[in-house]
Amino acid sequence: MMPAEAIVEARGVGKTYDGGVEALKDVSLALSRGRLNTLLGPSGCGKTTLLKIIAGLIPPSRGEVWVKGKKVDGPGPERAFVFQDFALLPWANVLRNVAFGLELRGMPKEQRDDLARKQIAEAGLSGFESSYPHQLSGGMRQRVGLARALAVDADIILMDEPFASVDEQTRRKFQEELLDLLRHKQKTVIFVTHSIEEATYLSDQIVLLSPRPGTVSKIIHPNIERGGRNPDEIRRDKNYLDVVDEIWQILKHYVV
């Protein structure tokens, strides 16, 4: 695969929380534009922390993050976040939730509702515009969360274990949809997961993090040949299985 221009860069990022927990240590990485990048590592290794630092939601203790040539000092319109716990407003219906990012930007109601309706349709949620989050399944809630992130038309989508709380069938369906989405839109995705298979299956680049304090232990480019093959064929592919095994050989030393 051709090397692509870095859209997100971390330089020597470290994070020590107030209580003294050192979550990240000297993380440097470059993430390519238009690609799906995964942060993979054992739980508690600082994946969420790193993602939130890139999002500008928490400041790093050391080092800096650059996004599109600008140093991050807070959230920005070129980045949108998909939360692990969905973070939907319980008192707002699907339409208002999907339009919420646009509402915060002060877009007139009619215009933002139009945009939100398009995203809702693309997410396969047509007919649920006036449903409330508690009336939806976990999978549907996550679709709402993704639609909200896509509605603001950010270049970079940050996803924190988005498929962690849905069942396996839905998870695989989501994975296909995500790959589809990337084929049609020029989005850069930074995807957090603790599933080796998921990371290998989806990613152009995998950043493997060591246990706490998280450091970059290896960067892997799976280079899986997709070309019209169906998901099951890909999962039997020798290259795919080799990458899964390579990551497992590293991660298994981290299991206590």
């Binding site: 959230p75 949108a80 939360f83």
Partner: peptide, 21 residues
């Protein structure tokens, strides 16, 4: 819910919007 506040911040909410919305 702290994560709702974080969500609003991630979409660029201003301080008063975090209170009112």
């Amino acid at each position: 819910d702290k994560s709702l506040v974080e969500m609003a911040r991630s979409f660029g909410a201003r301080r008063y919007q975090i209170y009112t919305k």
